[in-house]
Write a protein that binds this DNA or RNA. Structure first.
Lengths: 207, 207
DNA sequence: GCGCCGGTCTTGACAGTGTCAAGTTGGTCG
DNA sequence: CGACCAACTTGACACTGTCAAGACCGGCGC
C-alpha cells in the first residue's frame, strides 16, 4: 500500500517532467493502478472511489470525473486486464503451439493477476457496452480460440455451431481458476496448481 | 458472529414448532427470502440491508439484528444454497447413478437458482468460518465426489492426493456454469445449455 | 504580451449505506 | 402478577457514490 503511493508519486514526477498534463501528469494511469492495488486486497466489489482517490493523492471526486462512474473505473481495469490476458495467451500459443499450454497460461494469469481476473469476470460491476472493453474482450476470445480449431461435423454429419472441445477446455480451465482462487481445492492442489492442472490434462482426452 | 447465526437457527427450530413468534412470525425466513429476491435482480454485491428490511416490512436495523452483519445474511443465504445444492446433486445421483447427470444437475442448479449460486461462490462476501456454512458446504462437496470415486494409482504407482478426473469434471461444470451465467457463451449454447454440456461431455473421455 | 477558453481537478452538498447504542414492546415463566 | 429477556425500533454516526458549481492552469488567438 505504501509502495503503491510511492510508485504513484514517482510516476507523477517522471511523467510530469516529460509530458505536460497539468496537475497530475497521468492521473488516469495512477487511478487504475491504485484501483488494482485496492482490488488485490479486498476484491472488486469492495472498491471505494474515495479510497482510490486517497491512494492516488487527489480529491475524492477525481475518479468519477475521469471514469464517469465506479463501474467506469472497474470497466477500465477489466479492459486493461483483457488486453494483458490476450497478450499472455498469445505468448503461450506462439511459444509452444500447444493448446494445453494456453490453458496453463490461462490459469497462471488468474493466479498472477488476481485483481484483473476477478474484475474481468464480474459483468454486473461493469459497463458491458463499453467499446474498449468489448474490443479487449474480443482479443482474449480470439487468443483463446486459436489452437482449438473450428467446429467439426459430428457423428450425425451436422456441424455444430460451436466447437465442443474448445468450449469444454475453456470451461475446464476457467472453472479450475475460479475454484482455485475461491479456496475450494484441497491443499495439495493449491500448493501446485499448475502441476495439478497438468495431471488433470493428462487424464483427459478430447475426441 | 457465526455463533449468533447458529443460535438463531436453534431458537427458531425449537420455538417455531411450539408457537409463532410475536411480531412477525418468522422474520428470519422472510429476510432470507427477501435477500434472495433482491440478489436475483442485482447480484449479491449490490445487496442492501435496508432494502431487504423494507421488502420484509421491518425496520432498517432488523436484518443486522438477526444476522449480525451484511456478510451474516449473505452467509445464511449461501448456507441454504449449499444445502439445496447438495439435495439436487444427491437426487441426480440417486436417480441415475451416472456422474455425468450429476454434472448436468450442477449446471441446472446454477441456472435455476442463480441467486443462491452466485452467493455461494463469492467467499469475500461471506463469513467463511461460519459452522453452518461449513457444514452445508461439506454436504455439497460429498455429494459431488460421490460417483467420481477415490484417487487411483498413477502410471508411476504413487497415489495422488486428489482424483484428477473428479477435479477435472468439477472444474468443467463449474466453469461452464460461470461462463454461461456471465454471458460469455455464443447464443447457440445459451439457448440450450444442457444440450451443449451433453455435447461437450460426449466429446470428452476420462482415463 | 494578454485575455479568454476548455479541460482538469476541487469543493461542497446530498441521499443512501452499514453499524452500533439505547430504547421499546410484548410474550413467557417463576 | 411482576420480572425478565429476546425481538424489534429509533436515532445517530461515519462513510459511500454522485452531482453541480467553482478554482486552477496550460495553450490558443489576438
Amino acid at each position: 500500500m505504501g509502495a503503491v503511493v510511492f510508485d504513484t508519486v514517482k510516476i507523477r514526477a517522471t511523467v510530469a517532467l516529460v509530458t505536460d498534463r497539468y496537475h497530475h501528469g497521468d492521473l488516469r494511469r495512477a487511478l487504475i493502478d491504485a484501483a488494482v492495488a485496492s482490488i488485490a486486497e479486498s476484491g472488486p466489489s469492495a472498491l471505494s472511489l474515495r479510497a482510490v482517490a486517497k491512494l492516488a493523492g487527489v480529491s475524492h471526486a477525481a475518479p468519477a470525473h475521469h471514469f464517469g462512474d465506479k463501474a467506469g473505473l472497474l470497466t477500465a481495469v477489466a479492459a486493461e486486464g483483457y488486453d494483458r490476458f490476450a497478450d499472455a495467451l498469445d505468448r503461450a500459443w506462439e511459444a509452444t503451439g500447444d493448446f494445453i499450454e494456453v490453458g496453463i497460461a490461462y490459469v497462471r494469469f488468474a493466479i498472477d493477476n488476481k485483481a484483473y481476473f476477478e474484475t474481468m469476470f464480474r459483468p454486473e460491476l461493469l459497463h458491458e457496452d463499453d467499446p474498449d472493453l468489448a474490443r479487449a474482450e474480443a482479443r482474449s476470445r480470439a487468443a483463446l480460440i486459436r489452437g482449438a480449431g473450428e467446429p467439426k461435423p459430428g457423428p450425425d454429419g451436422t456441424v455444430p455451431e460451436f466447437n465442443p472441445n474448445a468450449l469444454g477446455a475453456w470451461s475446464l480451465v476457467h472453472g479450475f481458476a475460479g475454484l482455485l482462487m475461491g479456496g475450494n481445492f484441497p491443499q495439495a492442489v493449491a500448493a501446485d496448481p499448475e502441476g495439478a492442472l497438468r495431471t488433470i490434462a493428462a487424464h483427459i482426452r478430447f475426441d
